[in-house]
């Protein structure tokens, strides 16, 4: 039981970062229907911007987070406008290939500039373990969970009370009807893409304080984010939160009880099972074409 508590805590920490990455992807992939394999590179770039902020500029952790969000919003804006929109005009499936290319391009640019060494973003939080009952955690890990909770709450508020949120929810239910009702799809698209990039970057920045960041840091997490989005059901925000946390916890329990080698497999097994039984995902809404 003591072990179980620790496994659970580990899972919640890792799951929190999954939630942030997957939320960005569920907006981009689930709602805008853009298959963006470079989403993992947004995560990686967020980590590097945090390293630049805390190590090179020395501006402290909170201003660095602001820097990460600003940079990633700008980058997301630019990429959507300069790459994805023009390519999608000809054939939307080309976007998938373009995002693969972008992913390789970004990894190699970073490799050229920053080199292959893992880098650590400084959180400025006190080092060492914090013991809560039988659970050992560090202040950085607790901060990841706290910041993820704050971000998710903020996102939910935005989705509920702003025009962009309303438009997004409309689009997630039925894109065609939303368009007929006069929603400016292009404007919603670019804002959503920028928010998605910022969420991934934020996750990368937070994780870079604990797990360091390397040019290839985003390649596995993007696959897990796709798993979460598909598990949750395309475009389901609440579903992505639950599925993200659940995947983190399940992975942690599998590692603890069955061995580390199986960890990266479980998510994919789940996704196959869920797609067979419930093709719209666990929390997806099935909309019929009329």
């Amino acid at each position: 039981m003591i072990l179980f508590q620790q496994f659970l805590a580990n899972g919640v920490v890792v799951g929190s970062s999954y939630v942030l990455v997957a939320l960005g992807l569920t907006l981009i992939f689930g709602i805008l229907k853009i298959v963006n394999f470079a989403h993992g590179e947004f995560y990686m770039l967020g980590g590097y911007v945090a390293v630049v902020g805390t190590q090179v500029l020395g501006i402290g952790p909170l201003p660095s987070i602001v820097l990460v969000i600003v940079v990633m919003v700008m980058l997301g804006w630019f990429i959507e406008r300069a790459i994805f929109v023009p390519i999608a005009k000809k054939d939307p499936t080309n976007v998938i290939i373009a995002s693969f290319g972008l992913s390789i391009l970004l990894q190699n640019i970073v490799l050229k500039i920053a080199g292959p060494e893992p880098m650590l973003a400084r959180s400025g939080l006190p080092r060492g373990a914090i013991q809560i009952g039988n659970i050992f955690l560090t202040s950085e890990r607790l901060a990841i969970v706290a910041l993820a909770a704050v971000t998710v709450t903020a996102l939910l508020v935005v989705l509920k009370y702003t025009w962009i949120g309303l438009s997004l929810r409309a689009m997630s239910e039925n894109a065609t009807v939303a368009r007929i009702c006069g929603i400016n799809v292009r404007r919603v698209g670019v804002v959503t893409f920028a928010i998605g990039a910022a969420l991934a970057g934020l996750a990368g920045a937070l994780m870079a304080t604990v797990f360091t960041v390397q040019p290839n840091a985003g390649s596995l997490i993007v696959m897990k984010a796709f798993v979460i989005v598909v598990l949750a059901g395309m475009g389901s925000i609440e579903g992505a939160i639950i599925a993200g946390l659940a995947l983190g916890i399940v992975e942690s329990l599998v590692t603890g009880y069955l061995g580390n080698g199986l960890r990266d497999i479980v998510g994919f097994i789940f996704v196959m099972g869920v797609l067979t039984i419930r093709p719209q995902g666990l929390f997806g809404i099935q909309t019929d074409r009329s």
């Binding site: 620790q6 899972g11 797990f211 360091t212 580390n260 080698g261 990266d264």
Partner: peptide, 17 residues
């Protein structure tokens, strides 16, 4: 004896064991 995948970063669960 515990295996991990190349590039793994999180060992809390293994180390808890």
């Amino acid at each position: 004896m515990e295996a991990y995948n190349p590039g793994d970063k999180d060992f809390y669960s293994s180390l808890t064991n």
